[in-house]
Design a protein around this nucleic acid. Structure first.
Length: 679
DNA sequence: TAATGGGGGTTTTTT
DNA sequence: ACCCCCATTA
C-alpha cells in the first residue's frame, strides 16, 4: 500500500499523493523522479483508478517499463501491465492501429523510420524534378530534418529554413512544394513516418467527437521528461486533457537536450499558462551523487545565464572516494589509454564494469577508445549512434514485412527489388511501374500483385528470376498459418539475396532469425516492423566480441542515450571545445545553452567517481603529422575547475609516440630478408 | 543505358 | 557507415 511507504521524503510524498489538479514536478537529477512517478502510479491504483485508465507517457519505452515493473514489484496483485505506457510515438501508434478507420488510415499501414523517410523524400524529389541543382541544395537527410522540425514546431517553413539552412532559404517555395508532394505520396502509399504518428494522433485528439472519446478513456495522464516535449506533443496532451484537469508533468529544465527535435524547456516553464490551476512541487534533494560531484554540477549550473529551477542539495552525504578529476591527456590515443587504465583501476577497487560508463557528445568520439578496449579485451557495450536497425539486411526484412501487409508500399518495393543482382535504381523503378495499373496506382492487394508480376518479371535478369519469383510468392501467399510461420517463409526466401549481397552473410542471417522470432505474438507483420522502428534495440557492441560471456561490460554511451541512467563511475571524454560543446551547435545562444545542459546531464550521471578528460592535441587525418591544439571545453570555467582536481599527463608513454617522427627502418629489406629464406 | 565497384571525404544528438 | 563521383563493364 502506498500509505505504508516510508522511503519518500515529504515533497516526493506530496507529489505522489497529489489530488486532481494539474501537477508539475520539477525534479533535478538524482532527486527520485522515477521513485516519485512510481509512487504516484501506485497511489492512483490504491485510490481505485483502473490501471487501463492511467496513461503514462515516457521518453523511452524502457523507462515506462522500468516504472511499471517497479510498481508491479510492490503490488504483485494489481493488473499493472494494463496501465497504458510508452512513448508519445508508441502510444500514437497503438491508438492509430486501433482507430485507423476513424482517422482515415488503411489497415496495415506501414511506419517509416528516419532513413526510409529520407529515401522517399529523395524519390519524390527526383519525380518532381525540382531542386535538382545539387550544389546549393540540402541533402536528403537535411531535408528530412527540416521537414521534421517544421511539423514538430509548427513554425513556418521559411522561418525554420532561415534559422537552420540559411544558405538555401531562397528555395523555400520549392522545398514547400516538395514537402507537400511528400505528404501526398505517403498518403497514397499507406505510409506514416515518425512525425505522422503524432500528427494523426493530434488530429484525432482535436476532433470533436473522436477527441472527446479518446480524452475520456483516461482518468489520469502522467508525462515524464516534460522538458523534452515539443509543440506537437503539447497539443496532443492538451487535447487529451481538454475537459479533465488530472495531468501530471515531471521534468527538469536543466536537462532539456532535444531542441533539434523541436523540443524546448519553455513548455515546462510555461506550463501554468497551458494548464489552469497548476500546482508546482520542486524536488531538489539529491540522493545520487557524492557531495564533491554535486559541487561540480552546481558550479556548471551557476554558469548558465538563465539559471536552473532546481538547485541541487544533499540530505545525507553520499559517500565518495576522492575528488572529481580533470585529466589532461596528450592526445586522443593517450586519452584512450588513460581511460582504460582508470577503468581497470576502479575495477580492481571493486567497481564493476557495468557500474562504469564512458560518456561522449557524438557517437564517433568513442572510436579510438573502442580499439583500445578491444586490444585489452575489456568487454563493452555501446549505446547511441548506429543501430542494429539501420543495418541494411534488417531493413530488407522489415521492408518485406511491411509489404506483406501493404503491397502499395513503394519504398519497400524499391528497397527489395534492388537487392536482386542486376537491378539498380533505374530497373527498380521500371519494375514498380510495371506493377501499376492504368491509373498508375500500385496494387492494393496481393491478388493484384500476382496478376501483374509475370509482366514485371521479364525485367529481372534471367539468373535471379527464380529466386525473385519465390520471394514474391512467399510474401503473396498467406496460408492459414501463424504470422511467425509466414515471417519464416519470407525470411527463407530472402536468404539467397542476403548471401549474394553481403560478404558477412552468416552474421546477418542470425539477425533475421531474431526478427522472425519477434513475430511470435502478433497478428500483423507490419505491426512487428513498426514496433522495431519505434523501439530499436539500443546497443551495438560487436568490436569486443560478445560481451555476454562474463556478463560484465563497460558502458559506452552518447550523453543523449545515457539520459535517466546513473553509474558509480562516469568518464566524460573529449571535453574539448568543438567536441563538447559541439561546434555544430554554436550557431545560436540557445544551441550553446543546450550543450551546457548536456554537459550537466553527463556529470550528474555519476554517483561516486567522476573524471573529465581533455586531449591537448588532435591529429588531423588528412595531412600526416599535422595537428592542432585543443581548447578545453568552455564549460570548464574557472569556477568549475575549482571543484575539480587537475591531473596532467604531459608525457605520453612510448607507445603513444608519433611514429612518423622516428627514423624510418629499412622495411622492405627486412621483409625480403626473412622471406627469401622461405624459397 | 544502367549496374557495379572503387575511392575519397564526412559524420551531432534520436522517437 | 554513408554519400557522392567516376571509371569500367554488361
Amino acid at each position: 500500500m502506498f500509505a505504508t511507504r516510508t522511503d519518500l521524503n515529504d515533497h516526493q510524498r506530496e507529489a505522489a499523493s497529489f489530488g486532481d489538479q494539474p501537477l508539475r514536478v520539477i525534479a533535478g537529477p538524482g532527486t527520485g523522479k522515477t521513485t516519485t512517478l512510481t509512487a504516484r502510479v501506485e497511489y492512483l491504483l490504491d485510490q481505485g483508478i483502473a490501471p487501463e485508465r492511467i496513461l503514462l507517457l515516457t521518453f523511452t519505452r524502457r523507462s515506462a517499463r522500468e516504472i511499471l515493473n517497479r510498481v508491479r514489484a510492490i503490488r504483485a496483485t494489481a493488473h499493472v501491465h494494463r496501465v497504458a505506457g510508452g512513448t508519445f510515438h508508441s502510444v500514437a501508434h497503438h491508438t492509430l492501429r486501433r482507430h485507423h478507420t476513424a482517422v482515415g488510415l488503411s489497415d496495415g499501414f506501414g511506419v517509416l523510420d528516419h532513413g526510409d523517410a529520407a529515401d522517399l523524400l529523395d524519390l519524390v524529389r527526383s519525380d518532381l524534378g525540382v531542386l535538382s541543382d545539387k550544389r546549393r541544395l540540402p541533402k536528403k537527410n537535411t531535408l528530412a530534418a527540416l521537414y521534421s522540425r517544421t511539423v514538430n514546431t509548427g513554425d513556418a517553413l521559411r522561418d525554420v529554413m532561415a534559422e537552420h539552412t540559411p544558405w538555401c532559404v531562397d528555395h523555400h517555395e520549392q522545398v514547400g512544394t516538395l514537402f507537400s508532394a511528400f505528404v501526398n505520396r505517403k498518403r497514397a502509399l499507406g505510409l506514416l513516418d515518425f512525425d505522422d504518428l503524432l500528427l494523426f494522433w493530434r488530429a484525432a485528439v482535436e476532433d470533436d467527437a473522436l477527441g472527446a472519446t479518446l480524452a475520456a478513456s483516461f482518468d489520469h495522464v502522467l508525462v515524464d521528461e516534460f522538458q523534452d516535449v515539443n509543440q506537437l506533443q503539447l497539443d496532443i496532451l492538451r487535447g487529451l486533457r481538454r475537459c479533465d484537469p488530472r495531468v501530471t508533468m515531471v521534468g527538469d529544465d536543466a536537462q532539456a537536450i532535444y531542441g533539434f527535435r523541436g523540443a524546448s524547456p519553455r513548455f515546462l516553464l510555461d506550463a501554468p499558462d497551458y494548464f489552469e490551476g497548476l500546482v508546482t512541487i520542486t524536488l531538489n534533494v539529491n540522493y545520487r551523487s557524492s557531495g564533491a560531484i554535486l559541487e561540480v554540477a552546481n558550479a556548471l549550473a551557476a554558469d548558465a545565464p538563465e539559471g536552473f529551477c532546481a538547485v541541487l542539495r544533499e540530505d545525507r552525504p553520499v559517500l565518495g572516494t576522492g575528488s572529481p578529476q580533470l585529466v589532461h591527456c596528450a592526445d586522443e590515443r593517450h586519452q584512450s589509454e588513460i581511460v582504460a587504465d582508470r577503468v581497470l583501476e576502479l575495477y580492481e577497487e571493486g567497481v564493476a564494469l557495468r557500474d562504469q560508463a564512458v560518456l561522449f557528445r557524438a557517437a564517433h568520439h568513442s572510436a579510438d577508445l573502442e580499439i583500445e578496449l578491444s586490444r585489452r579485451r575489456i568487454p563493452f557495450v555501446k549505446y547511441g549512434g548506429l543501430r542494429y536497425l539501420e543495418a541494411a539486411h534488417v531493413k530488407d526484412l522489415l521492408a518485406a514485412f511491411r509489404l506483406a501487409d501493404n503491397p502499395r508500399d513503394e519504398v519497400a518495393w524499391f528497397r527489395l527489388l534492388q537487392l536482386m543482382p542486376g537491378v539498380g535504381p533505374a530497373k527498380a523503378r521500371r519494375l514498380i511501374d510495371a506493377l501499376r495499373d492504368e491509373h498508375r496506382l500500385l496494387p492494393l492487394s496481393f491478388l493484384e500483385v500476382e496478376h501483374r508480376w509475370p509482366g514485371a518479371l521479364e525485367l529481372v535478369p534471367c539468373d535471379t528470376r527464380d529466386a525473385s519469383a519465390q520471394l514474391i510468392q512467399a510474401m503473396v501467399s498467406r496460408a492459414h498459418e501463424p504470422p511467425m510461420a509466414h515471417a519464416q517463409r519470407i525470411a527463407d526466401a530472402l536468404v539467397p539475396f542476403i548471401v549474394a549481397s553481403y560478404q558477412d552473410a552468416a552474421v546477418r542471417l542470425e539477425d533475421l532469425g531474431a526478427l522472425v522470432l519477434a513475430c511470435n505474438e502478433t497478428t500483423r507483420l507490419s505491426d512487428v516492423a513498426a514496433e522495431q522502428v519505434l523501439e530499436p534495440p539500443a546497443s551495438t557492441g560487436d568490436l569486443a566480441g560478445p560481451p555476454f560471456v562474463d556478463e560484465d561490460w563497460l558502458v559506452l554511451s552518447t550523453v543523449h542515450s545515457a539520459k535517466g541512467l546513473e553509474f558509480d563511475a562516469v568518464h566524460v571524454i573529449h571535453a574539448a571545445d568543438g567536441n563538447f560543446p559541439s561546434d555544430m551547435a554554436l550557431g545560436s545562444p540557445e544551441g550553446l545553452e543546450e550543450e551546457r545542459r548536456l554537459f550537466y546531464v553527463a556529470v550528474t550521471r555519476a554517483r561516486r567517481h567522476l573524471a573529465i578528460y581533455v586531449p591537448l592535441r588532435y591529429h588531423h587525418h588528412r595531412v600526416r603529422d599535422d595537428h592542432s591544439w585543443a581548447q578545453p571545453s568552455r564549460f570548464l570555467s574557472k569556477a568549475v575547475r575549482q571543484t575539480l582536481e587537475e591531473q596532467l599527463h604531459e608525457t605520453p608513454r612510448a607507445s603513444t609516440m608519433n611514429l612518423a617522427d622516428l627514423e624510418p627502418i629499412p622495411g622492405p629489406a627486412l621483409v625480403e630478408g626473412r622471406l627469401s629464406k622461405l624459397w
